[in-house]
Design a protein around this nucleic acid. Structure first.
Lengths: 151, 151
DNA sequence: CTAAATGCAAACCTTTTGCAATTCA
DNA sequence: TGAATTGCAAAAGGTTTGCATTTAG
């Protein structure tokens, strides 16, 4: 944890950005809730517990900055809100998501399943892939069971 | 074209929705601009040319209805706007997109490249896939060339 | 005829921005 | 010190909603 904060601090300083207490608090929330897919508002409320004086605008500005630095990825699952997801260290590509259409849960897949597909896209379409977004919509294990039982 | 309109009319009637002139005009715009990825506002302006009295709210309501009926898919490329994409007839899955990070162009891929990946997700994660969203971000052919030349 | 649909304007939400005051390096 | 950052409140989108009126079936 401290290790990752240090790293991020260095990344910021490298571009002459400052690691303010507000930014640090925001990053800590992101680290603590790595599994979640929090909206800016969610993050704001959590950061407020540690740093009550912070403003929502600062959270937005911090998240934008972290996006630029590729520390977080901004995603959108189709509800009207952007969500922010910490990039795994060293990850070349954005990970994938399984969104349950029944209960709304979001599971992450870290494996890169798209190696072959990207080759096809590059060779057959001449498109140079830099990143991707892949989300599956369907039924998670739990909801599949629930439906089987009730049927 | 008329054939597809008829089909949609039937789909609407099947659920006792009406095919109003406003709805028909909206569908026609969608059919004419099948290749594009129009926002609600874009569609509104285009529909207005044929049916000047239409209101933006009606366009939104129509698009929502068409989404429900799986006639269009609502997508989000990360700019703050929802875009609407006509589903190809008989398509089981949503098609894929190649978004150029240089010029913003959007190309569509109709082939289903995810068959194998879906099998893995179903078998290894126990997740029952119903649909997916796959977008690649990178450089289109044109922009790759442009960059090579200027370098 | 009557449930469904429309147009308009107001309301809503999320996100962004201007600016004076503050703070990190 | 001085450029970067913050908080606040206002503004700016995009989208939704309430309601009186109109219309497709």
């Amino acid at each position: 944890m401290e290790h990752r904060i240090d790293r991020i601090k260095k990344q910021l300083h490298a571009q002459s950005y400052k690691l303010t207490p507000q930014r640090e608090a925001t990053v800590r929330v992101l680290l603590e809730r790595e599994e979640d897919h929090l909206s800016a508002e969610d993050i704001y409320l959590l950061v407020k517990e540690k740093a009550p004086e912070i403003g929502l605008a600062t959270v937005y500005r911090t998240l934008e900055l972290l996006s630029e630095l590729k520390i977080v990825d901004k995603i959108n699952f189709g509800d009207g809100v952007s969500r922010y997801d910490l990039r795994k260290e060293g990850a070349e590509h954005f990970h994938h998501h399984l969104v349950c259409i029944e209960c709304g849960s979001v599971e992450e897949i870290m494996d890169d399943l798209l190696g072959d597909v990207e080759k096809i896209v590059e060779n057959e379409w001449g498109f140079k892939v830099k990143d991707h977004r892949l989300t599956f919509h369907g039924l998670c294990k739990k909801c599949q069971k629930a439906i089987t039982v009730e049927a």
